[in-house]
Structure formats: structure tokens, C-alpha cells
Nucleic acid binder design. Structure first.
Length: 422
RNA sequence: GGAGGGAUGGCUGAGAGGUCGAAAGCGCGCGACUCGAAAUCGUGUUCAGGGCAACCUGACGAGGGUUCGAAUCCCUCUCCCUCCGCCA
């Protein structure tokens, strides 16, 4: 959510952001409605002032005198007009609220304008491994080694619900635990294990609603959604709170399963782990002061990159263009891990600064010591990392000619002595 | 699901139709004392909308009602706590 005053004073900037992000928000209708709101508020304030004046007078008047009766009648009459206007104002405010929920965040000036072709490669890390044999795809490795049972997963739930089995399941758990422990111990993130079912307010707070309602799994009976990422529950942890400046930055890391309908994204990637309805992810979330949120974005990005560095998996960092970034984000980096089996880069992380966009929706402020006033915090989050494609990258990078997988050094402490899979 | 209790500023917590945006304490800001700090003393300190400003308006969980006038009385809802039931 953007400040309505900001929208009115920077209408062109906002219209541009809507266009560049490919959103469909109606900026002009919002502005028209808000102008009307301000007009009603002014009239209403005048009526209320008059009514308050009459009420004070009444106290000094003797009851049942003509002056008393006249005053009371007049006050009553104004009261009725106020009630009518208040109703109109309430309805108008609700319309304004709904319109403003569809206004996207404004991309930072450093973000390239355009669609996915405008994305910029920021850096590449690591050497792509050269195998002396023909590398297998993760699908073949998984099937040959029996790490994941896709067919039975489909039996239990449906297609694209992978069921990890045996050492395959252990590897997934090792990966999650390694990443969590790393963020906690190396960078001081506080661990959180949040609920997976989120209510509407939570998902509106971080900006998944209203836009992505059809992309989430919905539990109708309870009007709740399965979280598509840990971002909503963890960020909403502090919804409607005023934070202490001394406590900032606040940093959380959380593992959750994530659930996405991936509606309309079939055709490509119908097999394997690349695109699934349920997956595991370790997320990092930060609440920071506005003045250093872009430094915090870089350090968050670095924290996510370190996971791949320690796993010794080559990757590249992409700065997303306006058309490729999400609704709520002001600036987003993607991290893509290299998968030699198919010779492609796979998105394993998305790291974003939302500035105060989410904080406005969630009403999260902090009291500044320098001016004594309340300000919205800036929120950021980043995957650190999503497991399915990291899992793919591990399998394909660590495969041997005999079809076995070497366990990466970083995961060995989590694998109960297993150093070779297969 | 049933029965009670509760929701007030950054926090704790008084307030029970008008003199209440709200006592007190904590916290925080400023000043004094100090070489400096702690302690102490003084002083200030709710948020939001409108206006250049004086000022006006709104907000005591949300919505509605009674009244000239509601934090305060009535109704509905939400959330939290306690007890009972149900499930595990």
C-alpha cells in the first residue's frame, strides 16, 4: 500500500509503475474518490464543530425553556445529517481501501524497465563443472536412486506433489536443517516455526491478496489459505505493532512447506521437481529502518548466496526488471543455481526490499529517537533457499559416473554418516 | 460448541454520562547536578485527518444504538484469558 497523499502528489509516477509492472490498478478512480473523501470530511468536521458548540451551550441552559428546546431540536437535526454523511464516508472509504489494495509498489530507480528480457545479470559465481561422462538429469538420478516417488505422491495427493523417500527424504531434511542452522548461527537470525494456514488479513498484509487469491490453496470452511511462502506468516508476526528502534533490525528465519496451485503454468516443466505444488523453503525476513534498507537488501542477498557457496554450487545473481518483479516489491534479486544435467540455471531464491509497502498494509511502525515520531519500518525477505531446485542442483552437480551422489561436505553432519548416496 | 472475565497512549494501568485525549507509574526526549555516568531533581512526551497558522475534527478492540452530550449505558461482532464439553 502506498500513502494516498504520495499517490496524489506523484500520480504520474504511480501510473508508470502500474504500467511497467503490468498491473491493472485504477489510479485515477482512486484519486477522484479520495478527493471526494476529503471534501466530505471537511463538511463533516464543520457540522461536528457546530454540534459540539450547541452541546456545550445546552449545559448552561435551564431545562424546558424555549431556548433549551430550540437548541436541542437544532442539535438533533444536525446529528441526523452527520449520521447520513458518516455512512456515505464509510462506504467511500471502503471503496478507496479496495482500490488502493490493487496499487503495486513503485520500483526503485535502479530497477531496469521492461519485461523479463530486461533482467540484468549482476554477477556469476563458481566454475561450471565439466564431467568426463554424460551427466544425468535430476529426474533420472531421482528415479534411478529412488529418492522421490512421484507416482505415489500423485496417488496420495495429485500430480506435482512429490513424496520424498528414504535417503532422499533424509537429504531434504539435511538441506533444510543445514540452511536454518547456518542463518541462525552465522548471521544471528532468530528461528521461527510459524503456522502454515494464514487468514485473509495476513495475506493482504504482505500483498499476496487480493491479486493472487487464485494461486493459493484455499480452505473454504475456515476462510484460510495455505501459505505460498513463509513470508506472510513471518512478516505478519509483528502486524499492528510498534517496534522499538533499538531492536531494529529484527531478523527471522523460518522453515515452512509452501503450497502453490501454479495455475496456468503447465506445459513446460511437467516432470520432476522444478515446479511442484508443495515444496520446502527456508525464508529470511527482516524489519529494518528505512535509511538502511538497501544495505540490508544487499546483506540479505549475500546471506542467501552463501548457502550456494558453501554447497559449492555455481550460481548467478539476476536483478529483476519491473515487469518480472512481484506486486509488492521495490527491488528484487533472483539467485539461480546452475544445474549441469540440463545445462540451465534454476531460480532458487528471490530476495526483495518492499520498503514501507507491506508495513503500511500491516501497520508496523517504530518510534524514531531522532524526531520522536512514528515511522513505518521497511520489510525485506529472501529465500535462503527453496529446496526443490537446490536439491536438483546438488544431485546434478555432485553426481558421479557410476550414478551415485556425493554428499556435499556441508550436509555431511546432517546425514548420519552417509557420504555417498546410491 | 457452552458459561464467565477482559480489550484504554511506546508499555503497565486508573477512569463508571459533560469539567477526559484521558490519573499514576514505567519508558523516552530536553535541562540541571557530575570530569563523565548512575542515581536524583525539574520539564516535556498519544495518534490521525484538515489548515501557512491560531485552530478545528476524529480515535479508549470494530460496527450499530440511546442521549443535546458516551471511554463510561444498550445491542452485534472480533480477538485474548479462565472454566466446562468435544477431539486427540
Amino acid at each position: 500500500m502506498l500513502d494516498i497523499k504520495f499517490i496524489k502528489e506523484n500520480a504520474d509516477l504511480v501510473r508508470n509503475a502500474v504500467k511497467n509492472k503490468g498491473e491493472k490498478a485504477n489510479v485515477d478512480e482512486l484519486i477522484t474518490k479520495d478527493n471526494r473523501r476529503v471534501k466530505i470530511v471537511k463538511e463533516l468536521d464543520n457540522l461536528r464543530a457546530e454540534k459540539n458548540r450547541l452541546s456545550k451551550e445546552v449545559r448552561g441552559l435551564e431545562r424546558n425553556t424555549p431556548q433549551f428546546e430550540k437548541n436541542v431540536m437544532e442539535s438533533r437535526e444536525i446529528g441526523n445529517r452527520i449520521k447520513k454523511m458518516e455512512k456515505e464516508l464509510r462506504e467511500l472509504k471502503e471503496e478507496i481501501r479496495i482500490l488502493s489494495l490493487w496499487i503495486p509498489n513503485i520500483p526503485h530507480p535502479s530497477v531496469p524497465v521492461g519485461d523479463e528480457h530486461a533482467n540484468k545479470i549482476i554477477r556469476e559465481w563458481g566454475e561450471k563443472i565439466e564431467f568426463s561422462f554424460k551427466a544425468k538429469s535430476h529426474i533420472d538420478l531421482i528415479n534411478d536412486l529412488g529418492l522421490i516417488d512421484f507416482e505415489r505422491g500423485a496417488k496420495i495427493s495429485g500430480t506435482h506433489f512429490p513424496c520424498y523417500v528414504g535417503i532422499g527424504a533424509k537429504l531434504e531434511r539435511a538441506l533444510v536443517n543445514f540452511m536454518l542452522d547456518y542463518h541462525i548461527e552465522k548471521h544471528g537470525y532468530k528461528e521461527m516455526f510459524p503456522p502454515f494456514l494464514n487468514n485473509r488479513e495476513t495475506l493482504t498484509g504482505t500483498g499476496q491478496l487480493p491479486k493472487l487469491e487464485d494461486d493459493m490453496y484455499y480452505v473454504e470452511k475456515d476462510d484460510m489459505f495455505l501459505n505460498p511462502t513463509a513470508e506472510p506468516p513471518v512478516t505478519n508476526f509483528h502486524r499492528n505493532e510498534i517496534l522499538q528502534e533499538n531492536d531494529l533490525p529484527i531478523k527471522y528465519t523460518a522453515y515452512t512447506s509452501c503450497f502453490r496451485r501454479e495455475a496456468g503454468s503447465y506445459g513446460k516443466e511437467t516432470r520432476g521437481l522444478k515446479r511442484v505444488h508443495q515444496f520446502n523453503k527456508v525464508e529470511m525476513v527482516k524489519f529494518v529502518k528505512p535509511e538502511n534498507s538497501y544495505d540490508e537488501l544487499e546483506s540479505l542477498l549475500n546471506n542467501a548466496e552463501e548457502i550456494l557457496q558453501i554447497l559449492k554450487i555455481p550460481y548467478r545473481v539476476i536483478l529483476l526488471s519491473t515487469g518480472d518483479m512481484t506486486f509488492a516489491s521495490a527491488k528484487t534479486y533472483d539467485i539461480e543455481a546452475y544445474a549441469p544435467g540440463s545445462n540451465e540455471y534454476l531460480e532458487v531464491s528471490s530476495v526483495s526490499n518492499f520498503e514501507d509497502f507491506q508495513a503500511r498494509r500491516m501497520n508496523i511502525k517504530y518510534k524514531s529517537k531522532s524526531d520522536g515520531k512514528l515511522h513505518f519500518v521497511h520489510t525485506l525477505n529472501g529465500s535462503g533457499l527453496a529446496t526443490p531446485r537446490t536439491y536438483i542442483a546438488i544431485l546434478e552437480n555432485y553426481q558421479r559416473e557410476d550414478g551415485k551422489i556425493v554428499v556435499p561436505d556441508a550436509l555431511k553432519p546432517y546425514m548420519g554418516g552417509v557420504e555417498l548416496i546410491g
